[in-house]
């Protein structure tokens, strides 16, 4: 049940990311909501479930995106890996501070990696591009922090649903 719910959330966020947000942007900037959900899944879901989500979502994003191919798979799977490495096995005990720190660090890592790739491979990388990356990263971080309480509540609600089903 929760897996199906999460699949729907991821699919809807991918469609929003690749259509709605492009059109309803804030002066060309918009948050990476797929990344925000992957971070949450990495923090609040079981290892195998989080890895499976990270891989499938990454593959879908890489297929749609201009590349580099494997970039999304790598970042998403590393997000899950780092979350498992840093936080205890009981992900329900993740503190708010850790949650916030993780939600800030991953978008910074994502956009820094992408900026390095573009700077190293494209012909020019002017100062305006650096500014763009900074603002784009900041927009994602702000949205991820703003969405954090709702996302946490959503995952708690999913857990409650699962527990109720088990009791039955």
């Amino acid at each position: 049940m929760t897996i199906l719910l999460n699949i729907s959330i991821i699919l809807v966020s991918i469609y929003l990311q690749t259509s709605f947000l492009k059109i309803f942007n804030i002066s060309v900037f918009y948050p990476n909501i797929v990344l925000i959900f992957i971070i949450s899944i990495a923090l609040f879901r079981k290892n195998y479930e989080a890895y499976a989500f990270a891989f499938c979502t990454g593959l879908l994003m890489d297929t749609i995106s201009a590349g580099p191919y494997g970039f999304h798979i790598a970042i998403f799977m590393l997000t899950v890996f780092v979350s498992n490495l840093l936080f205890s096995e009981d992900k329900a005990l993740v503190s708010n501070v850790a949650f916030v720190a993780f939600q800030v660090a991953i978008p910074i890592f994502f956009y820094t990696s992408l900026a390095i790739y573009i700077a190293m491979n494209s012909g020019s990388f002017p100062f305006s591009s650096v500014t763009f990356f900074l603002i784009q990263g900041a927009v994602t971080v702000v949205f991820s922090l703003a969405m954090a309480p709702f996302v946490r509540r959503l995952f708690d609600w999913e857990d409650t649903l699962d527990e109720r089903r088990k009791v039955r």
């Binding site: 259509s19 060309v28 749609i64």
Partner: peptide
């Protein structure tokens, strides 16, 4: 069908 999801690369499907 799709715009690039990163908002950094510019591509469409």
């Amino acid at each position: 069908s799709f715009f690039d999801p990163t908002n950094v690369r510019a591509s469409i499907v």
